[in-house]
Amino acid sequence: MKLLKRYRFFLITVLIIVVMTIINKSLGMKALGVVEYSLKEMILVIPPVFVLLGLLDIWVPREIMMKYMGEGSGLKGIILAIILGSAAAGPLYGAFPVAGVFMKKGVKFSNVLIFIGAWSTTKIPMFLFEMSALGTPFALTRLLVDIPGIILIAYTLCMLISKDEMNDIYRKAELME
């Protein structure tokens, strides 16, 4: 029963796709094609992310992460979070395991949020594409709006989340394996 409860959303989704395929075969096959594409993408992205996470976890001591991105890191922690997030490759779901390792290493919560925000909006390849496709003024304007916006959102969230909630998030990150 516990297994059914754990995978209920997956099972409901499978049931919906089966019913959809019975009702409208072309729509069901299209949905299965999307699922297949997404699975292939995840299989190509997730293993390298976890290899890099393992290396980060082993090679970078907690003290160094705390020094450069922890509570007392100030501006250098913000800048490092933006650089790491901007230089990252892969879809946004790859950022969350990295953020979990950052939390285990004692990275300040606002810097974790800035890292996730930078991963999602300030990637270097995306910036270069925007420069070539939409023009340099657009790309620079978007970047100059996004960076302060990410920082503002991160600090606003930190003010809105209680210390107990934040400690609970860090506790859950510690339990992550």
Score class of each variant (00 low, 15 high):
Ala139His: 00
Leu27Asp: 04
Glu41Val: 15
Ala118Ile: 07
Val18Pro: 03
Met159His: 12
Ala154Tyr: 02
Phe109Thr: 07
Ser120Val: 14
Ser26Ile: 08
Gly100Gln: 04
Leu3Lys: 01
Leu92Met: 14
Ile151Gln: 02
Tyr7Lys: 00
Ala139Val: 00
Leu84Ala: 12
Lys25Met: 08
Pro91Val: 13
Gly100Ala: 10
Met126Asp: 14
Lys30Ile: 02
Val18Gln: 09
Gly77Glu: 10
Leu144Pro: 01
Met103Arg: 01
Met42Cys: 15
Asn24Ser: 06
Met166Glu: 15
Leu4Tyr: 01
Phe138Tyr: 02
Glu165Val: 12
Ile79Phe: 07
Glu41Cys: 12
Gly85Ser: 11
Ser132Lys: 15
Met1Val: 06
Tyr68Asp: 07
Val35Arg: 00
Ile124Leu: 15
Lys67Phe: 11
Glu130Ile: 05
Leu15Tyr: 04
Ile64Cys: 05
Ile12Phe: 11
Ala95Asp: 01
Leu134Trp: 07
Ser110Pro: 09
Ile82Arg: 14
Ile169Gly: 03
Lys25Cys: 04
Ala173Gln: 07
Glu71Asn: 04
Leu128Ala: 14
Ile43Glu: 09
Trp119Lys: 11
Arg6Met: 00
Ala31Val: 04
Lys104Ser: 06
Gly106Lys: 11
Tyr93Arg: 03
Tyr155Arg: 06
Glu36Pro: 01
Met29Phe: 06
Ile151Gly: 06
Ile116Thr: 09
Met103Asp: 01
Ala88Asn: 14
Met1Leu: 09
Met159Ile: 10
Ile58Thr: 10
Ala139Pro: 00
Pro47Arg: 11
